[in-house]
Design a protein around this nucleic acid. Structure first.
Lengths: 347, 347
DNA sequence: TCTGGCGCTCGCCTCCTGAGAGTGCTAAAA
DNA sequence: TTTTAGCACTCTCAGGAGGCGAGCGCCAGA
C-alpha cells in the first residue's frame, strides 16, 4: 500500500483523471462501469476495477463504503492537480470583464473590493483578497491640522499615493502657523525617509542640536514622536461570495461550514495562511487539510500573489469545496492576480 | 377570525407572553400542557387549549400541524414586542465592554468595524453597521501633490477629521510650487464652504474675473473642477458574525440562509432597508417579512440610528432568527447606538 | 493481460408499525 | 358561565423489515 505514485501507468493516470473529473462534475462516487464508459479506451468494468484497486492501494482514491464507487482522496486530488490537469483558458468575456472592472483609477480599497467581488462571481466560490502591504513606506510629506481642543490631525503622505491620517493629543493648543512651521521643519528633515526610521532620525537630530533647539523644533519632535509611534494599520483582507459556499454545501456539513465562516471572521488564521502564500512564486493550492487548518477540511484554497511595480504586494484567491473545477479556477486566480497587479502598477 | 387583538383578555395576554418566551428559548412548538405548567395561574391544559384556540383565531399563534403545539405568527411576535415585552437591562460587563471598545480615538472605519464586531459577539447574531453619512461636508483645506507623469494627488480635508484623497489627471505636468500656489488660492477662496458648492463658487469666480485671470488660477480651477466632480464615495456598511446565523439555522432552511447571505452581499437591498431606518426616532424592529424582503422571512431585524453631534449619522442593528431574545437585543442595539454616537461626538 | 461471471455487501427506498405528543370536542363539575 | 376531565383522533417520528440495485472482489477462462 501507498506505493510510489510516480510509477503509475499511463492507463491508470488516465483513469484517475477521468474519475476525478467526473466526481468533480457529478459529486457522487464513480463506479467502474461509468468509468469504463467515460474513458476513451474500450475496457470492461472488471478491468477498470482492477486498476481502481491499484489506485486505492496507492492512496489516491477510496470508497466511502463497501459497495459504492470511488472518490478521490486528498492525495488523489493533489496528484490530479500536479500532473494530470489540463488548464482551461478563460472565456474571453470573462477576461474582458476582469480587465474592465480592475480599473487602475479606482481607489485602492475599491480596487480590492472589486477584485474580490468579480473573482467570486466568476468563480462562483468565495474569494479572498489580502490588502496590499506597504513596502518600506517612504515619507513624502507631513501636514498638521489643528482640531478642536488639544488635538491635531496628522496627515502623512507616503510613497506615491498612500495617505494616512492620525489624531494626536498634544500638551497644549498650537496655532496654525506654529504647526505649519513644525511641518515644514519635519518635511525638510525627513522627506524621502523610511517611515520607520523617521523617529531615529529625529532622536539623533535632537541630541545633536540639544542646545540650539527652539520651541518650534520641540513641537515638531513631540508631534512626530506621537504620530509615528502609532501602530501601522494592520493588514486586512476582503472576503466575498460566501453565499456560494452555502449553495454548494452538502446539507450535512453545516457545522463544517460554520467553522469555516468563523475562520473568515477571526482574521488571524486566514492572515497567517495568506501570508505564507505571499512568497510563493505563482499559484499555490491547498487541498483539504493541507493548509493545516481543520476548518478547511473538505475545502480547497487556490491563491496567487500579485505584484505592483515588480514587488509582491499581496495575495488573492478562492475557497471552495475540494471538488471544484481546478482547471478553470487556477487560470482564473492566476489571471486575476496578474490583472490586479497590472492595475496597481499602472496607477 | 382575526378579531381585534386590542380586546384580548389579561389572561390571554399573559399566556401569549409565556408562549412566545418559551418558544424563543426552546425553539419548539409549545403544548397546552407545558404552558399550563409554566404560567403562574393554576389552570388545566384544557383551559389553556381554549385560550389558545382564541389566540389562533386572532392570528397571533398557529400550529405547524394538527397535533403539534403552537408557535407565534408574525403578528404574534409583533404584539409580543409591542405590548408584552419587558426589557432586560444589559449585564454591566457588557456595557463596560461596549464602552471600552468604542474608543473615540479610533479611526472612523475601525470604529464602525469594532462596533459591528462587538455587537455581533455580544448578541451572538449577525450585525450591521451603516457607515456614517457625511453631512454637508465642509472644506477645510486642500493640498495638491504632484505624482509621476501628469497626475496630481488631491487631498481634501473636510469638517473635523475626514480626509479624502483623489487622483486627478492634468493636461500638463505642474511644478510643486505651481501646485502650492493653486492650493493656497483655493484655500483662501473656498475654505469653510460646503463641498458640493465649491464648484459653483469657482464658476462664479471664473466669470467675474475672466479678464484678470492668470495661469495659476486657471490651474486651480482645472484641478478643483476635476477633483470635486468625482463622485462621493457611496455609503457602505459592515456585516459581521454571519457565522452565528449558521449555528442557529434550522437544518432545513439552508436555502433561505443562502438567500439572506446573498442579500448581504448585494448591498443594494440592505442599503435601501437601512436608509429607511435612518429617520426613525429610535429602535425599529422588522419581524419576518415585514421588511418587505422575502429573504428576511424567518429573520428579524432590529435597528437603531446613531447620532453624531446631534445629527443622525447612520444606522446599526442585528439580524437574527425571528425567535431571538428581543428583550435583550433591543436594549443592546439601543445602547450600542448611543455609545457609538457618543464616541463619534466626542472625537 | 484482459474479460465475463458470480456471489456478496452495502446503501437506500418504501412500507409498516407503535409510541408519543397534543389537539378538539363533549359532557360533567364548579 | 367557566373550568375541568376524559376520550377519540390526528400527526410526527423512530425503528424495523424487506426488496432493489449498484458496485465491488475474486476467480476461472480466453
Amino acid at each position: 500500500m501507498m506505493s510510489n505514485p510516480a510509477i503509475i501507468s499511463d492507463r491508470a493516470r488516465h483513469l484517475l483523471r477521468v474519475l476525478v473529473e467526473r466526481y468533480i462534475s457529478e459529486g457522487q462516487p464513480v463506479s467502474s462501469r461509468a468509468l469504463a464508459r467515460d474513458m476513451g479506451f474500450d475496457l470492461s468494468p472488471a478491468t477498470v476495477r482492477n486498476v481502481m484497486a491499484d489506485l486505492e492501494d496507492m492512496g489516491l482514491i477510496c470508497a466511502p463504503h463497501t459497495s459504492a464507487g470511488r472518490i478521490p482522496t486528498t492525495q488523489g486530488y493533489r496528484f490530479f492537480v500536479d500532473s494530470l490537469l489540463t488548464m482551461q483558458p478563460l472565456a474571453s468575456g470573462e477576461v474582458q470583464r476582469l480587465r474592465s472592472e480592475l480599473d487602475p483609477d479606482k481607489a485602492i480599497g475599491d480596487l480590492m473590493e472589486t477584485a474580490s467581488n468579480v473573482l467570486s462571481e466568476v468563480s462562483k466560490l468565495a474569494s479572498l483578497v489580502l490588502l496590499p502591504r506597504r513596502f518600506q513606506p517612504v515619507l513624502r510629506q507631513v501636514e498638521f491640522l489643528p482640531l478642536s481642543e488639544n488635538r491635531v490631525l496628522v496627515i502623512l503622505v507616503t510613497n506615491e499615493r498612500e495617505v494616512q491620517n492620525r489624531i494626536v493629543h498634544t500638551a497644549r493648543q498650537y496655532s496654525p502657523s506654529e504647526l505649519q512651521q513644525a511641518a515644514n521643519y519635519l518635511n525638510s528633515l525627513c522627506a524621502g525617509q523610511d517611515l520607520h526610521k523617521v523617529r531615529e532620525t529625529l532622536l539623533k537630530e535632537m541630541q545633536e542640536t540639544r542646545e540650539r533647539m527652539n520651541d518650534m523644533m520641540r513641537l515638531a519632535i513631540e508631534m512626530a514622536d506621537k504620530a509615528f509611534a502609532m501602530p501601522e494599520p494592520t493588514p486586512d483582507y476582503v472576503v466575498k461570495g460566501q453565499a456560494h459556499l452555502l449553495s454548494r454545501a452538502e446539507t450535512d456539513s453545516v457545522e463544517k461550514l460554520r467553522q469555516l465562516f468563523e475562520v473568515f471572521n477571526e482574521k488571524r488564521d486566514i492572515l497567517h495562511l495568506l501570508n505564507q502564500c505571499l512568497h510563493a512564486k505563482g499559484v499555490q493550492i491547498f487541498i483539504g487539510a493541507e493548509s493545516g487548518y481543520d476548518a478547511l477540511e473538505d475545502y480547497s484554497l487556490i491563491t496567487a500573489p500579485y505584484e505592483a511595480r515588480g514587488q509582491v504586494a499581496g495575495v488573492l484567491g478562492v475557497v471552495g469545496p475540494t471538488r471544484m473545477g481546478y482547471e478553470r479556477m487556477i487560470p482564473l486566480v492566476d489571471i486575476t492576480a496578474k490583472l490586479l497587479g497590472a492595475a496597481l502598477t499602472q496607477r
